[in-house]
Design a protein around this nucleic acid. Structure first.
Lengths: 342, 342
DNA sequence: GTATAATGGTTACCATTAAAGATGTTGCAC
DNA sequence: GTGCAACATCTTTAATGGTAACCATTATAC
């Protein structure tokens, strides 16, 4: 294995000079730099990041916790997109990305804590915060920096990046109510996630504004974003009076919802309107194309990574919480276009 | 920061004794172990993996290269599922998972090589091999172990895990030909991937067996698995005579294909049969549920991780190439069930 | 002739572990 | 009871590859 000493010997300088050439210190003359670089190339030398990390007390790596059981997490386009944003920044800042993945959240949290305590990563990004998140509590005690994608309930001292879930859900439901719908059902995700709580709150807010009372029978909470859309949509469609619109808290559940609606011989949007959340790539290919909320997921990923790296650099991050805004994308499933056309 | 020395001081032993307690060496007496463990707990000590990696010359980490531009890669359920399999094993074997992600493959390959050369990871798993893969060539030169998920064309010396793409595509197309279809179109993915090449070969094989000639007009190659399904399906439907069946090389493109077919006022499977590939989670929720090929993706991920870890442990891996078999799942989109019913 | 800057060498770590060495203890033959 | 080997149990030492703080040397400016 080629070490810094081999390079030093070849370039006829001391190891520390080589080290300074690597970090491009300006106290080394250009000719020396050239000679050292030539030697590095000739020997095929690559600095050993492990050794560097040891003395610098920094691994130049960020941990990412998916915060879901791995089964459902990866295949969610949300994670895909946010990882893309994160990796964009880590790449630019020369950080590497370590994934904490496990079958369940508890195990994932354990792995994350271990990663941090063992110095494998300098900081952590937690995707999708939970209500009363145990990991967040434990991480806080370790004094290691972390940033949460989502809302941290209770404490306001954490670094966090989020989208405006309440506002976005509110505007989606308001949109449906404005179209004349009275029975707007809500197909929500697991209650333990803060984003589901927030979207619920936005739903309630819109009802309040229209002087309508929320009927809890028209609200259901799926346990699994992938599988449960179909099942719960069927339940909602059996209610009397039948809902004339469904607001779905995550686009993944829309596939199942569409199927249930079509099986019930209902036409979207004529018989029932549907509005989703996330603007996953496939939603534009559905029949009819889905009206949904576009979240700047990629930007959130970038913001999260930038935040944690800034904190690691000792920079001030003000404010610690950043909220990016979403946007209602009106396509065909809500019926608004049809109305305009008439 | 708590180090091994602090623990040693507290337990009144030498640092190396603490080290041996950590690795549970049997040359340490039980009372000493207890004393040391108590000290570790009291001080909240966690071994520094960086220092350990330095002397052990192993980072206990595996790199994963997605081998696609990050945009399309993450959101592909294939990667989700295979990462799940990989992480299952890495977790059990105490390895951590480092992701090489970038906007394009070239950059991703660069990052992967750097990871390896800088000793950040002990080995690499390459997902989805390409034809004439430059990364594979470069990695071979470094002597660092890696395993490919997919087929490596040319060389047979690499470790690889794959599914039986040729055989599976063959049986899917044979299934359609057996149902009486003559004009079976093929919506394939990017030609640079070996799995697309193999599925093409299976398609041709089935045609040969039935004594049919392959009409290249009925074959198209999408550049992007997400976006292009719709566009190319439209093209295929405009052919005269119109195809009576479409074999789609990746389920992701099926969403677009279904849309194009429905827009053309055709009924699946009555007017046109569709068979997909991958058995992505959503395919069972489509209308009609998709006949597709189930690949043991999770198992492939596990096998890939087990292979690379075995290689790192110096174990013999024979044979270096493992091929797992897939299975044709007959649902409603191919029309076979309808026939049986009649 | 001295102050200053430019340049690069020396040395002491960083946290851990493998290997070799030290210490005491036990077993057994004589 | 002594001598010696074998063993158990720990300590000491020397690495691992790299970097930063501190020097030493030389060149230039004043």
């Amino acid at each position: 294995m080629v070490t810094i000493k081999d390079v030093a010997r070849m370039a006829k300088v001391s190891p520390s000079t080589v080290s300074r050439v690597i970090s491009d210190s300006k106290s080394i003359s250009e000719p020396t730099k050239e000679r050292v670089r030539a030697a590095m190339k000739e020997l095929g030398y690559h600095p050993n990041v492990i050794a560097r990390s040891l003395i610098r007390r920094s691994s130049q790596a960020l941990g990412v916790v998916l915060s879901r059981s791995a089964e459902s997490a990866f295949s969610n386009p949300f994670f895909a997109e946010i990882l893309r944003g994160i990796s964009k920044v880590t790449q630019r800042c020369q950080y590497s990305l370590v994934l904490a993945t496990a079958e369940n959240y508890k195990e994932e949290a354990r792995q994350c804590l271990q990663m941090v305590m063992e110095r494998r990563v300098d900081g952590v990004i937690i995707l999708a915060s939970r209500v009363n998140d145990q990991l967040i509590e434990n991480l806080s005690e370790t004094e290691h920096p972390f940033v949460v994608v989502g809302r941290v309930d209770g404490d306001q001292h954490h670094y966090a990046v989020n989208n405006d879930n309440i506002q976005a859900a509110y505007s989606a439901v308001r949109h449906l109510l404005n179209l004349g719908h009275k029975k707007v059902a809500f197909l929500n995700g697991p209650v333990e996630y803060t984003f589901c709580q927030d979207r619920y709150q936005g739903y309630v807010m819109a009802f309040r504004e229209f002087g309508l009372t929320v009927d809890e029978r028209y609200i259901c909470h799926a346990e699994n974003l992938h599988a449960d859309g179909y099942k719960y949509s069927q339940q909602l469609l059996q209610l009397k009076p039948q809902p004339t619109a469904i607001f779905v808290a995550d686009d993944l559940m829309v596939i199942g919802a569409y199927r249930a609606i079509k099986e019930a011989k209902l036409v979207i949007p004529d018989d029932i309107a549907v509005v989703g959340f996330n603007d996953d790539a496939f939603t534009n290919l559905l029949d009819p194309p889905l009206t949904t909320i576009r979240i700047p997921i990629y930007e959130m990923g970038k913001a999260a990574a930038e935040t944690i790296i800034a904190v690691l650099n000792g920079d001030q991050v003000i404010p610690p919480q950043r909220i990016l805004s979403s946007e209602l994308l009106i396509r065909d499933s809500c019926g608004a276009k049809r109305l305009v056309r008439v």
